[in-house]
Structures are given as C-alpha cells and as structure tokens.
Design a protein around this nucleic acid. Structure first.
Lengths: 326, 326
DNA sequence: TATCATGGTGAAAACGATTTCAACGACAGG
DNA sequence: CCTGTCGTTGAAATCGTTTTCACCATGATA
C-alpha cells in the first residue's frame, strides 16, 4: 500500500507538503505540480482510517431505520442517500427491525465512534430515547416524529388525519371503522387516530370506539383486523387505516367477503403507495413527501457539520401534505 | 474522551494489558477484574478509528445497490443487514440510482479503504465491472447475476422464465406480449426474455417479436408500454412483464382500456410483490427468496473474512424459485 | 541443581495521516 | 542596514489503539 511518505519522497518534498496539497494549505505551484504527478504515478489514495484517527471526523453518517423494506422508509433513505452522496458523506445504515431497544443500542454504537452525525427515522420515542438523544455527542436529526428539544423533520399527522376524516365523513354513508397502529408511535399511532376521530366528529359523524382495531404496519395485520371487523360488525361500510400497507390488506379482506372490486371504494390509508394507486385507481390517502423529508433532514445535519452559513442549522421543520382521491 | 491509557492507569496496569483484556489475550484473573471495574467506572469505549488504523479492519461491509426504494432490493438489504448485525459488522450503504458508473465509483471508493468486504447487488455487468471486481482488494460477493470468476448468489432467471412461459402458453388463448427491461441487465433483461420465449416456443405458442417492448423497471414504464401495445395490437390478450412492478403498470393499463378487473387475469410478472398479491388475488409470477439471497451472500462473505472453517467460503450459489398462481 | 516451558507483563514500535512550530528566503518600508 | 511581513517549508508531535519483544516468575522435568 503506497502511503503519503512514498508520494512525498517521489516528489522530493515532505509529507507535510503532500498533506497540505491534499487539503488546500500553503503550497507553491511547482511543488503542487510535482506532488500531483507523483500521486498519479503511484496511484496513491489516502487512508481514511488514519485521517479519521487524526481529525476525529469520519465523513460517515449513521442512519437508523425501523425497517428497510417498507416503501416509506426506503423512500426516506433514498432521499438521505442522495444528499449524502452529493456532499461527500457515506451512509452507515442500521436496521432495527422495529425493535426499540436495538434503536438505543445503535444510538450508543454510533455515538461512540464512527459517525459524524445521526439521522433517526423514528417510530417510538420513549423517555430513554429522549435521554439518549439529549446526551448524544454528535448532532442528530429525527424524521417522522416531532420531539421537543430535538431537531425534527416531520409531517403533521394530526392535521392530515383530521382533514382526511373530515372529508370522508361526508362521503361515506354507513359506519366507519378504523385500523390503527400502536400509540407508542406518536405520529402514526396517536396523532393519526386522534386527528381522524376529530375530523369525523367535526363533520358530525363520530367514530364508534368499538370499531377501532390495532394492526402492526403489515399487510397481513390489516387483512386480519379487517376480517375480524367484518365478521363482528357486518354493517361496517368503510375501513380507514393508518397506513396504505394495512389498507391493502383491508381491501383484500373486503374483496373476499363482499366481492372483488368492492374494497377499493371502501378503504383509506396513509402514504400514497404507488402500487395501491395503480391497482385501485386511487383510494383516499395522504401524500407525504418522504423523499423530501430525507433530503431536508440530511441537509440540515450536514449544514451544521460543515459549518454552512445562514439559518440552515438544526431546527424543527414541518413538511406539508396532500389529500389524495377525496 | 477517556482513552485506554486512563483505564490502564486507574487499574494500575499497562495499556497493553487493557488491550489484551479487551481482545482475549493473556491476562491474570485479578487484573482482569481491576480492568473491568476501571472500564465501568470511566465509561471507557474504545476508538474504532484507532483500532481500524492499527489492525486494518473496520468491521464495515460496503453494500452497493441500484435503487433502495424497490421491494426486491430492500428485501435483499434487509437480509444483508440481518446477518451483518448478528455477526458484529455494520453496513455502509451506497445507492447508485441505476447509474452503472456510480457503481464503479463506489467500488473504487470502498476498496480504497473503509470496508472489509463488499456486497454488490448487481444489474449491469460491463467489462469494466469485471475488471473492477477482479482487481478488488477486499472480498466481494455479487447478488442477482451469475458472473464467471466472481462469487455470486443468484436465481436462475432463465429457468424460471422458461417454466413460467411454458405454463402460461397453455392457459392463454390469444396473443401474448412481453414487456422486458434492458438486456444489459443479463438476469432480468436477457435471461428472463430468452427463457420466457423458449418456454412459450416449447409449448408451441411462440412469442411474436413485434409484441416485445422495453420498460425501465418502473410502474409507469410498464403502464406506458402496455398502453402502447394495446393500441397498436388490440388483439393482445396477455402481457407478460419482466418485473411485478411493471406488471402493476400493465395491469392498470388493461383496466383502463378493457374495464376494471380485467387486468388481473391478463398479466404476469416476476418477484411476487406483496401488494400485487393482495390486491389482485395473485397474478402468475415467480417467487424469489430475496431476503435469503441477502442472508446467504453475507454469510459467505463474512465466513471468509472471519476465517470460518468448512466449505463455507466464497463460491457461487444458485437459489431456487417458485412459480406462483399458474 | 540446572533447565525449560508456560502464563503473564509492560515498554516501545508500529499504523498513516494532520497540524503545530520554528525557521527560511525574499522583499518592502523605514 | 535593520525590521517586519508574507508565503512556504519540513521535523516532529499527535491521534488511540494493537502487537512485538524481551523478560520475569513459577513450577515441572531431567
């Protein structure tokens, strides 16, 4: 492995000079030229490990996600990766598989060393999370939840759900049911359910608490909950879901029970999934800029790391949403 | 930042002893105990950067993917992450956004330093790729393509496509069309089309070359190609696609032109997408163990890195497939 | 008793960069 | 001529580990 000293010797300078050449310090034109040639000749490439040890910066950003194989998360990740690549950073990806403790584990792991900053695609935020975030030695940005005292990029799930509920209340004749997710996920669980309920109520068609079920983000859980709902309460005529994925499951359940093609008029979701859009002609849902949230969060993080001027540092940013097919 | 020397002083030993304690070298029981306490007391955590510099190993695996927000890739990635986490490695993710040159770029970047090994989720393999893989200084495993002289974990797309074509030929009455992808992607482009054609031919219902179109992996491209097909050749009665995603687009096109509900009986795909399965009741498609391929590839890679015994090193592995809904 | 493994030990030399520091030549101003 | 400044330079210290090496007890073996 050719090292800096070799380059320096070949160019007839000290390694300090080579380092300065590489990092834009004082260097005369002719020496710069000689160094440049020596580098090309030897095919030298600097050891990021040595550099990291000396400078304390790795140009690595830790990204913690609850599950990589979900459309929303993988879109967010795409946005993050886009910005990181453009700005000379790399992504250290940690997949927690929906286990909150592994999230904390990774926060620890990342903090104690390799990464310069962290993007946390958040689901559940416990007090332990708050503490971990608070005491984090590197800058950190959250995506998907709005947490006091932390930099967050999020969507207003309450408002979106309210609007959706309000719009649906008028269009649905019979009873409306709701399949949510754990309320430990404040945004997707609590906010969406509360907002939806409030929207329905405001439109004079309140949600019957007996028609609320809990899913687990998966298509199958949506299917199961819907089947159960339909058998317990056959007069349910619309099933609103907290995610498009669960909505797809519910849709299948309705098709099975009531006949194919029926479901697509009787479910709603969140997330504006592309498959769902294409295959059903569009159920009522909420479009979020997932890619954008990844982009924005990462830019914020990198701005503070790179010391970019202007009001572009860590702060909390609420992104807009869009009701679809209502 | 508390360093090893501090721990050593507190425990009254040399830093060599602490290092040995941490790495399982010779150490007496009482010193081990003292060191353990000193570590707990100080909250010491070792600098992975210094360690990396000294040992030359980073416990990082570079993963190069063509596009993170696709179901197949994100499942593969999930499999990779699973194994890496379990075996004490971390994932450095690089998303090339389907640009072959960025793939090479990352191969370079990874090779020249931070990572101990590379998993390449491959699409197009050019000669340049072959050279880059050949001359790679760290072990590398490919997923999704079978390349001579490289360790590969792949599915037999030709065989699967043959079987699918053969099975469909008998079940479809009218004309069959095909929407493929670029043949630079040997597996998903060339193999699937050839296999499918061969399967049809073997069943006595050969594919009309005029009814072949090219998509670009996206739902919209499948939609566009299908619309075009249907308008140019209205007598087409079945559209086979090289991916489930494009099949979803084709399905929508058919629904629009021929009426809702018609499409689901008149398209096939590859990949057994969960949404498609739920929303259509199941079109003919091929199920691949994407997660498994990530797992297997990563285990192979890590086995050679960790020097695990047995015949578990780098080699080429063909995984099975399963025809669905035929 | 002399010799030899054997488990333990710390001083010191890497690993390969960056950065501090003192110093140098040239040149301008007084 | 002296002084100060400016652009430029290389020797050497530093980052925090791991690893080599020489060496020391201690108990077993010849």
């Amino acid at each position: 492995m050719v090292k800096m000293k070799d380059v320096a010797e070949l160019a007839g300078v000290s390694s300090a000079a080579v380092s300065r050449y590489l990092n834009g310090g004082y260097i005369s034109a002719d020496k710069a030229e000689r160094i440049k040639q020596a580098i090309e000749l030897t095919g030298y490439v600097r050891s990021s490990q040595a550099r990291a040890l000396r400078t304390g910066s790795t140009k690595l950003i830790g990204v913690i996600v609850p599950k990589i194989n979900s459309e929303s998360v993988s879109r967010i990740t795409a946005g993050i990766g886009q910005v990181l690549g453009r700005r000379g950073y790399q992504m250290l990806l940690a997949n927690t598989d929906n286990a909150a403790d592994r999230e904390l584990e990774y926060l620890d792991l990342f903090q104690n060393h390799p990464v310069d900053g962290i993007v946390l695609v958040a689901t559940m935020i416990t007090d332990e999370h708050r503490r971990a975030i608070e005491s984090c030695r590197v800058p950190i940005v959250l995506i998907g939840q709005n947490v006091e005292g932390a930099a967050c990029v999020y969507h207003d799930d309450y408002e979106a759900a309210f609007e959706l509920g309000h719009a649906l209340a008028g269009r649905v004749d019979g009873k409306i049911a709701y399949i949510g997710v754990t309320e430990e996920d404040r945004a997707a669980g609590y906010d969406r359910r509360c907002g939806f309920e409030a929207g329905l109520r405001a439109a004079g068609n309140p949600l019957d608490a007996a028609l609320i079920r809990l899913g687990s983000f998966t298509l199958d859980s949506g299917y199961g909950a819907a089947r159960e709902l339909l058998s317990v309460a056959p007069d349910v005529s619309f099933i609103a879901c907290a995610t498009d994925t669960m909505a797809a499951g519910a849709l299948r359940a309705i098709d099975e029970v009531r006949g194919v093609g029926e479901g697509m008029h009787r479910v709603s979701g969140f997330g504006d999934n592309a498959f769902l859009r294409a295959l059903t002609g569009g159920i009522p849902t909420v479009h979020y800029g997932y890619l954008t949230s990844g982009v924005e969060a990462t830019n914020m993080l990198l701005n503070t790391l790179d010391g970019v001027e202007g009001e572009s540092g860590l702060k909390t940013l609420k992104l807009g949403h869009q009701l679809m097919n209502v």
